[in-house]
């Protein structure tokens, strides 16, 4: 009953990896972008929903967050796009040595930013348990911190992999390139959050 085959073509000469939307990894990464992007969008919606209900934002007796740590973080994450772009190009060209070095650099930069992130929490001037303003501000910062930390772990693991002999495999370069793409998403989502945490309370109050 199974129909007999009629051989109509040969696949053996196809490549086994490619960059961008031709690879499966890229689709996985895009799908996770969409999921996380939606989660952020809903969190933003919740922020504005709560804000619109109130007269004061932040509520009376609360000061807007301090600017220093958050602004430094923002500058650093924007600057990090330079080595990130270099990393992506190096991966696409298969330059293993360069990829290894740049990965380590990215890991290091991210550590610096994680430290800054800790100071950001300290400069919010509100606790999550003070009121809903505090809750949503903490939530935004935490969501982004989790997002950031996930990508950082991913980068660390990739840096590890690329320093083993698996670094030889073409497909691993695809992974590095996708990770670089993800990093762009991390800083892109940060920009609105930066405005919402640090500036809107200044403009609104």
């Amino acid at each position: 009953m199974i129909p007999q085959p009629r051989f109509a073509g040969d696949l053996s000469t196809l490549k086994t990896h490619a960059f961008g939307h031709r690879s499966m990894t890229w689709w996985g990464v895009i799908a996770f972008f969409l999921i996380e992007g939606t989660a952020f969008a809903m969190a933003f919606a919740a922020y504005f929903f709560l804000m619109n209900l109130e007269q004061g934002w932040p509520p009376p007796d609360f000061r807007p967050p301090g600017l220093v740590a958050g602004t430094l973080f923002t500058l650093l994450i924007l600057l990090s796009e330079i080595p990130n772009t270099m990393l992506k190009h190096a991966a696409e060209k298969g330059q293993l040595r360069k990829v290894r070095r740049l990965l380590l650099l990215m890991v290091g930069l991210a550590v610096a930013m994680l430290v800054l992130r800790a100071f950001e929490f300290a400069s919010l001037n509100v606790w999550w348990s003070d009121n809903a303003y505090g809750s949503i501000v903490w939530a935004l910062l935490l969501l982004h911190a989790a997002h950031f930390a996930t990508d950082w772990v991913d980068t660390v693991v990739l840096a590890g992999v690329m320093h083993t002999r698996h670094g030889q495999e073409g497909r691993k370069f695809v992974d590095v390139a996708e990770n670089a793409m993800y990093w762009r998403f991390v800083w892109l989502t940060w920009l609105p959050i930066y405005v919402m945490i640090y500036w809107i309370p200044r403009w609104a109050s």
């Binding site: 009629r6 109509a8 053996s12």
Partner: peptide, 8 residues
């Protein structure tokens, strides 16, 4: 009759 397939 027959189902076309690709191999390789």
């Amino acid at each position: 009759a027959k189902l076309p397939v690709m191999t390789g």
